[in-house]
Design a protein around this nucleic acid. Structure first.
Lengths: 349, 349
DNA sequence: GGCAGGAATGAAAGCGCTTTCAGACTGTAG
DNA sequence: CTACAGTCTGAAAGCGCTTTCATTCCTGCC
């Protein structure tokens, strides 16, 4: 078989040392005489030696691989995080094992099992919504893990994220402060997605705090895609009275909504204000620019990597990290036109 | 150590069989009496047995992991392909090992080494531009691989892709046929990127075939980002005479260009026609819609997975697969205005 | 009833590495 | 000169699985 692949014993023989010493020279250079180490290094280089990961993992009980279980890579927001995660892991000699589940909890469980089976030393999950079996498996195999994008209210699971509800409240307040009273919401699918549910709840909270309720038909739930956003916007603007402000649960839907307005000749923000969530690269470039909540996607990926790396190295780690999000106000939001009766605060002015 | 994790011998004992039989029952159910298999399955389920991937890989010389080496996940186009790749692999019980290199050949070599070290049974690469050492390593370790997104002219490497040059020729011809004679090009970085170089060459070929040359200052080379596209467009439109058609080497740059035109009050396609390449989801939604070359990103990922899976299973595989690309004409291209002198063909009309 | 032949099982040898454990060797102190 | 840390190296035992190879157990057939 792999006749072309030199093994550790080949390196050892060439360097004139035992396999044990060769192993030490390569993995823990400090525990070997410099001269010996040089001989081994030289032999390894000459032979083009590449250690056999599986053998190493079996013997050392460490795979140097980190798994990530994400909904999908089709959402640029996750792709960015994964990119940062992978990059940071690579810097420390770790490799990324990637699994996605398309928001299907059964698939997620299976994917997780697969990653554990492959020996992932740690696993990153998105959000807090996970099958109890997943947590049970993680416990059984003593696999460190961390949740990103959300904060775990129960405090039982290490997490790195931000408060989706509070962030949504801030977005909604921005619109309320502009004088809006008639709201529409374009939501992502709430099933198996705590982030969407939290954001939706945040919108409701903010409205309720000002005495407003969100009627069921003011909320349209759609999968993430530009086309869904467009279609949802069309629906919303067909209602009477139509909303003066539409809160979108993420930027993809919001951009779809803006596109729909442009197509339908609806002025943004003149006729309707639109907000997003995530702040994708393109959101700043649109005309009008999208008012949205900036989420530190890159930082999220990097922090997850650092967390697991630290934990595996036995360093101290914070099990709860809240990252800042920032409301970015751009051209897609403004005060409602006069035809919509101003609320009490504005009547005062 | 892993005291919580049951091993094969535990399953075997519980089922009252030898480890060998338990192994067969789980991996090759056909080679075991149904009754025995049931006992083993039952024991495995009861114990929550998860095979130890590294041990299995070591013994069987198969890791059931496939690696992918890509430039970056920040480009949605690659993210889509990787998503499809991962999904297809998962269906066959394979897991994806992901590495990216940000167009740095040194990083690419290192990442590849890492994937081989982790035991990837096969590896997917993007494009044809790779360090000879990479191919040497693949040969040494007898690691099957496949290149995607490009066609290998030398025929030495298995590939699944399309002819970037021909595709660019088709895009350019479309503009020529509309009557354009003054061209600008917004290119991606050509270093370590055969796709960009080929597309650029295609544009030149098409122009030359109609007696036109691309002057050096008509080509602006920029990294992939909306902002670069904008900036490049600004530069291009500052030249005198300004181009009536701008060919962008991918959609990200093209969208940036369109955005710049909107901001600068330049009418598309009235004042200038713009084309992209890739057909991202958003390209269809813009106003005007972007004329572009549709690339089968999902199919690319799926086909790569299928290729490697087939090869690993010992099935016949085609080492050269050309996938169709399609010119999608939308609103961003039109005939040049009269102020630009019509070319000979048009003079005839 | 005995035997060939195939199917199912078990014993045991690794897969290539890490890691005790013990031995060898060095230098320093008594 | 002996004794004793301390440092470096080698022998060997696995890590948890797969996979020959040999054995046992059937089944069918003469």
């Amino acid at each position: 078989m792999n006749r072309g692949a030199p093994k550790l014993s080949d390196v050892a023989r060439m360097a004139g040392v035992s396999p044990a010493t060769a192993s030490r020279a390569l993995s823990t250079p400090g525990r070997v005489r410099p001269e010996t180490r040089a001989r081994v290094d030289h032999a390894a280089r000459l032979l083009g030696y590449v250690p056999h990961g599986a053998a190493r993992a079996l013997a050392s009980q460490r795979s140097r691989m980190i798994g990530a279980v994400i909904p999908t890579l089709d959402n640029a927001i996750f792709a960015n995080s994964v990119n940062a995660l992978q990059g940071t892991l690579a810097e420390s000699g770790y490799t990324l094992l990637l699994g996605s589940h398309a928001y299907n909890p059964v698939t997620e469980l299976q994917v997780t099992r697969e990653l554990i089976e492959r020996g992932a030393d740690g696993i990153v999950f998105v959000g807090t919504d996970h099958d109890p079996q997943i947590y049970r498996m993680l416990a059984t195999f003593r696999t460190p893990y961390v949740l990103i994008w959300s904060l775990d209210p129960s405090g039982r699971h290490p997490c790195i994220g931000f408060n989706n509800r509070d962030a949504a409240i801030r977005v909604t307040r921005h619109l309320l402060d502009l004088g809006h009273r008639r709201f529409g919401v374009i939501s992502g699918l709430t099933a198996h997605n705590d982030r969407v549910r939290e954001r939706l709840a945040g919108v409701r909270d903010a409205l309720r705090a000002r005495g407003l309720e969100l009627s069921p038909q003011a909320v349209v739930e759609r999968p993430y895609s530009f086309a869904s956003g467009q279609q949802a916007m069309r629906e919303l603007m067909g209602r009477r009275p139509s909303p003066t402000a539409v809160v979108c649960i993420n930027d993809v839907l919001a951009i779809g909504a803006i596109i729909e307005c442009r197509a339908a000749g609806i002025d943004v923000p003149g006729d309707v204000s639109i907000t997003g969530f995530d702040d994708m690269e393109i959101s700043a470039q649109l005309a009008p620019g999208l008012t949205t909540m900036r989420v530190p996607t890159v930082e999220l990926g990097r922090a997850a990597a650092t967390y697991l790396l630290d934990r595996l190295a036995g360093r101290e780690v914070a099990t709860f990290t809240e990252l800042p999000v920032e409301l970015v106000v751009r051209g897609s939001t403004g005060s409602p036109q006069l035809e919509s009766p101003p609320g009490p605060q504005h009547a005062v002015r």
